[in-house]
Simulated assay, not measured.
Amino acid sequence: MEIFTSGKLTKVKSRHEPGVSKQTGFTSPATHYLEPTIDLNQELVVNRDATFFVRVDGDAFKEHNILNKDVLIIDRSLSLNFDALALVVQEGEFKIRRIPFGFSEKEEEFTVWGIITYIIHYAR
């Protein structure tokens, strides 16, 4: 009878070992402090130096779904795109308009102040 050897058997080096729960009783009401907070500047702002927040007063812009007390995030560094929602200066007043196709500031009666990137609706 012949004996064949195929090598030594070794122990598995990494083995999952379930841990024992260290929590006793109720969970701490302060555990949410361990989670990082959501920074809206980091999430919604691309160019911090050229971004402004504007609160709307009144319902004059309902046609653009912008209501009273909403906050607009406006980026002045973005390039103009057709149909983009923008804050413009027209006859010395701020207004909200869509950029028309083939827009040229020299030909239009308004000046683009910045592009609206987000509208934060007031919930109450």
Rank of each mutant, 00 (worst) to 15 (best):
T31Q: 00
D57F: 06
F101S: 09
K69G: 00
V71A: 01
E109N: 15
K106F: 09
I116A: 02
P100R: 10
P29K: 03
I120G: 00
N47H: 12
R124T: 04
F61H: 12
I120L: 10
Q42W: 03
F94G: 05
F4R: 12
Q23M: 09
A60G: 12
T51H: 08
A50W: 02
E93N: 11
D49K: 13
R55Q: 15
I66A: 07
E17V: 15
N65F: 10
H32V: 03
D57H: 11
S28Y: 01
D83W: 02
P18Q: 11
V46Q: 09
F110K: 08
E108F: 14
T10I: 08
R76F: 05
K22G: 15
F26Y: 10
R97M: 15
L72W: 02
I99W: 03
F52M: 09
E91K: 12
L44M: 14
V45H: 01
D70N: 09
Q23N: 12
K22V: 07
F61K: 01
I115Q: 09
R98C: 02
H16Q: 08
L40M: 14
K106P: 00
R55L: 01
T27K: 06
V112T: 12
D39W: 01
L9A: 13
G25Q: 07
L72V: 11
F61P: 00
S104A: 15
N47L: 00
K62T: 01
